[in-house]
Nucleic acid binder design. Structure first.
Length: 708
RNA sequence: GCCGGUGUAGCUCAGAGGUAGAGCAGACGAUUCGUAAUCGUCAGGUCAAGGGUUCAAUUCCCUUCACCGGCUCCA
């Protein structure tokens, strides 16, 4: 697997790492780096230590990961960070013993026997405590593949390796946190305790790592968002629903400006659509029921709510009365027919919705008969009431855009039609998955849908990819990965629309564009959208979490569901292809990522506070000079403000630096006399005096050109 | 959603079964200063919410809510 080397250093250990969902092959395992071997070995040492304290522990999997290693363990004792010290003590002993990692190859039967006896993942045989997870792991090893065991000291484990030579090779390690994980990642399996740690060749490297982690935490968008007053969350508003403060709103509006300019130049038309729509549209689009659990529950508009409640109540009363009446009068007699099926009353009561019909009218008192008729009437009336009208908050903009496409007759001459909107979508993400701005429940998407013919597809798709790259150059993104997601033929008709030829055709088209454009990408099977293949751009947050920041998807299925058509040159009807694209993703995630990318030190064009004019002292002529400069900047659309108060200059500068104001113009009497301003840049310090007009012109051009 | 952790002033955090503290931010006053903080005064809290134990709970217990970490890198 290719690994990018981070240029700025902070992200080195968070470099992209693509692992397929499938079990890692032996071949891949043998490509483990030295550090990964060491960490994998540390996981075995961790298991050894845990077993010395809790011999009954059952182990599942203990691989190396991006930032260290873990081992999954089942244990009735809840391991907490308070236990770390004693576990680490035992680990140190094992490392000090400098035991060799001995590899042995065994037959499947031998391995199974060792697992049954509890020996695998144990320090000794444990009768009655079979290594159940190891048995499960064993089952995943393909027939014919070598089965190997590794042993360090008394600890014997089913393991494909590879390891370092001796436990003593683990120079430095530390347990970091404990979490939970399902065995084999399946929530139907038992939940295990996952003990995380990290390990390095030596102490110095480990210390460097922890320093870097601290640094990374400082650029976490959640921390900076608070410090710079960009956004906030409020319990009363709801989880995952960010409130954009004025500073954050500046970022949004600058991004929108960029997107609107870029899209206008690229021939997009802007549209606007409501935040919700009727149920029926989402039945057409296929979001219901398949996407339903990611959508907020429906809002029900029930014109007949009161009437419905009244009738339901009445029907329930009649039901009770009929049953009671029938029972008391004719116990054990079949007197009631329900939807044509006669059944005795005694015993189970018929269901409320069922219609009663007396079968033995001669014996039924009039009163009872009247009640049955009333019941039937009530029931029928209830059935005649219109269904309530249901509205859903939109989780995607595509259905609305499809409706716009379909709103007027389209000709091939109208294509490609590019409909763009910063549409606000709402998704009911699981509570545990929310994460600052990176995963939210309300989001504004840099969305557009391009309707085109098959012939136009390649050019359109290529142009979208170029738009990404253009944006990424502006922002100076270097560490990202294009991920091409394709379908899995085995899941046609389930996870993916059942159109094998179309899948193949569009995937080939997309792959072609990628290769022709010389774009570096990884292809991931089984990750496509249900309606077509897609390209996602993956980035990593400050603390190393992977996110999709932009997406470009092909849709050859949903336009047909909406019966979208255009008139062809030969006067026939054809369904267009649709490209869903969001190069700037959503405001929420994109800005979350930008905050971390820039560590809050935004370029001038984006900075919420672009210029602060600071006077040294409060002399009237000086303040007047400062005010004039602020006014001129603001007249030119620059977010400038003056700090003319009585604080000391150093104090004003510190305030501005802490707010990460991009440019500070410091004015003293010397500047006033010379017609100068002293320019100070955030993080760069004083860069010297300049003529006032020159300084203003520089600021304006840097903004206009969106210079980094 | 599930497992674990956390929740004290706007922010960062201290504290303890006997009724709450600091720094910064804020307000007011003084300070006239050349590139990351001058000084003083004042104000700030139902200690997340609800319930329980107790003479007494912010502290112990339970529930709820929110946030954080993990559940995706599976011998």
């Amino acid at each position: 697997m290719e690994r990018e080397i981070a240029k700025d250093g902070w992200s080195a250990t968070f470099a992209p790492h693509f692992m397929s969902d499938e079990r890692k092959t032996l071949e891949q395992r043998n490509q483990m780096t030295d550090l990964e071997r060491l960490r994998h070995s540390a996981a075995h040492v961790l298991a050894t230590a845990i077993l010395r304290i809790w011999p009954e522990a059952q182990f599942a999997a203990g691989p190396p990961v991006e930032q260290g290693f873990y081992y999954d363990v089942e244990l009735s004792h809840r391991i907490t960070p308070e236990d770390f010290a004693r576990i680490e003590e035992e680990m140190k002993k094992e490392i000090k013993a400098n035991n060799v990692f001995e590899r042995t190859v065994v037959s499947r039967a031998e391995a199974l026997a060792l697992a049954e006896s509890g020996r695998l993942g144990g320090l000794s045989e444990r009768p009655g405590n079979a290594s159940k997870f190891k048995i499960g792991n064993l089952a995943d090893i393909p027939e014919g593949e070598e089965i190997s065991l590794f042993k360090n000291g008394d600890f014997l484990d089913l393991c494909a390796g590879p390891h370092v030579m001796r436990t003593g090779n683990i120079g430095a390690f530390k347990l970091t946190h404990v979490a939970s994980a399902y065995y084999k990642g399946d929530e139907k399996n038992p939940q295990l305790q996952r003990i995380y740690g990290t390990a390095f060749k030596n102490k110095t490297q480990m210390e460097e790592y922890f320093t870097m982690v601290e640094e990374a935490k400082k650029r976490d968008h959640r921390k900076l968002g608070k410090e710079l007053e960009l956004f906030t969350f409020d319990e009363d508003v709801g989880p995952g629903l960010p409130l954009w403060l004025p500073n954050g709103t500046v970022l949004i509006e600058e991004l929108e400006k960029l997107a609107k300019e870029t899209e206008f130049a690229a021939g997009y038309d802007r549209v606007r659509t409501p935040h919700l729509a009727r149920e029926n549209m989402y039945l057409t689009s296929g979001h219901l029921p398949y996407y339903a659990e990611s959508m907020f529950p429906a809002m029900e508009l029930d014109e007949f709510k009161a009437k419905r409640a009244e009738l339901t109540e009445r029907r329930a009363q009649l039901h009770g009365m009929i049953i009671a009446g029938a029972k008391s009068l004719m116990v054990g007699t079949t007197i009631v027919r329900i939807h044509g099926v006669t059944s005795p009353i005694v015993g189970g009561a018929p269901k409320l919705e069922q219609v009663f019909e007396l079968t033995d009218k001669g014996r039924a008192p009039e009163q009872l008969e009247a009640m049955v008729l009333d019941y039937k009437r009530t029931d029928e009336e209830l059935m005649r009431l219109d269904e309530p009208d249901r509205y859903y908050l939109k989780a995607m903009n595509c259905p609305h855009h499809h409706k716009i496409f379909g709103a007027v007759p389209r000709s091939y001459r109208d294509l490609p039609l590019r409909l763009a909107e910063y549409g606000t979508c709402y998704r009911y993400e699981q509570s545990g998955e929310l994460m600052g701005l990176m995963r939210v429940r309300s989001m504004q998407m840099n969305d557009a849908h391009i309707y085109c013919t098959e012939e136009q597809f390649e050019e359109e798709f290529r142009a979208v990819n170029e738009m990404y790259l253009k944006y990424f150059r502006i922002f100076g993104f270097e560490k990202y990965q294009m991920r091409f997601s394709t379908h899995d033929p085995a899941k046609l008709g389930q996870k993916f629309v059942d159109e094998p030829e179309l899948w193949k055709k569009t995937e080939d088209m997309v792959r072609n564009v990628l290769i022709k454009s010389g774009i570096n990408y990884v292809e991931v099977p089984n990750e496509a959208a249900f309606y077509g293949p897609k390209i996602d751009v993956q980035v990593w947050s400050a603390i190393g979490k992977e996110f999709t920041i932009a997406t470009n998807q092909v849709d050859f299925a949903v336009p047909a569901r909406f019966k979208l058509q255009y008139r062809t040159r030969d006067n026939a009807f054809e369904t267009p292809l649709c490209i869903h694209r969001a190069p700037l993703g959503t405001h929420e995630r994109f800005i979350g990522f930008l905050i971390e990318h820039y560590a809050g030190n935004f370029p001038l064009w984006l900075a919420p506070e672009q210029v602060s004019v600071i006077t040294i002292g409060t002399d009237e002529p000086l303040v007047a000079y400062g005010k004039a400069i602020v006014a001129e900047l603001r007249a030119n659309g620059v977010r400038a403000q003056g700090d003319f108060g009585t604080d000391k200059m150093q104090g004003k500068i510190q305030q501005a630096e802490q707010r990460k104001v991009h440019t500070m113009l410091v004015l003293g009497n010397r500047d006033l006399e010379a017609g100068n301003v002293s320019v100070r840049l955030h993080g760069k310090g004083n860069v010297g005096a300049k003529k006032r007009d020159e300084a203003i012109a520089d600021i304006l051009s840097a903004i206009k050109e969106r210079r980094a």
